[in-house]
Amino acid sequence: MNEIAAVAPWPVVATTLLWLARRRPSVYARAAVALLLSCAAGLVYAGSAAMQDLPAREGRLLHEYVALPGVLTGWYLLMALAAVACIRAVRPRIAVAVGALIGVAASVLVLPHHELAAVWGAVVPLCSWFVAGCLQRRSLWPLPAPGPWDAPEQAVPSRPAPQAAGERSARALVPLRQAG
């Protein structure tokens, strides 16, 4: 059951990231960077903690990282933050946020090391989400131009609005040069 519980978040994370990549690339970039930062911090901690106690065997670093209390909850929290960033309606956003908070609280209360579970289940994912947002705002890497999914209220019409027969803009009255 432990192996199944360790692998269970991967399809959820992969499905969420694929959905975000298709629907909202800007939120996808933030979620992917936040997940990468959170995992990197966890791997560094798991590597240093394993070397303090016992010599780590090859291939055990990932197992030690996933065995940290609250890590998988942190993955779920990051995916919930990405979903909240994509949802426009208020009630579903509240429902997803409350569900994520309940999940983190339940995970922290059930695990034996409450402080460590709170750090890896809430603090590290939230900090990595914040840092990924700061990196994205500073444009340290080129992101694609926002598409119609990012700002639907600013959509440009495909045809110009028809003008009355007597009304013409100043641009239309300017004579054009003859080509050739």
Rank of each mutant, 00 (worst) to 15 (best):
N2F: 07
N2E: 09
I4F: 12
I4P: 02
A5V: 13
P9I: 08
W10T: 12
P11W: 10
A14G: 10
T16I: 13
T16H: 08
L18S: 10
L20T: 08
V27E: 04
R30I: 01
A31D: 02
L35D: 01
C39T: 12
L43R: 01
G47N: 06
S48N: 11
A50K: 05
P55M: 09
P55Y: 04
A56H: 06
Y65C: 02
A67S: 10
L68T: 02
G70K: 02
L72R: 09
G74M: 01
L78N: 01
L78P: 00
L78D: 02
M79N: 07
A80E: 02
I87E: 07
R88S: 13
A89P: 00
V90F: 11
P92I: 09
A95S: 13
L101T: 12
V110R: 02
V110P: 00
L111N: 07
P112V: 04
P112D: 08
H114F: 06
V124Y: 02
P125N: 03
L126H: 00
V131N: 04
C134Y: 08
W141T: 08
P142Q: 12
P144N: 04
W149F: 13
V156W: 06
S158Q: 14
R159C: 03
A161P: 07
A161I: 04
A172Q: 11
V174C: 11
L176I: 11
L176S: 11
A179D: 09
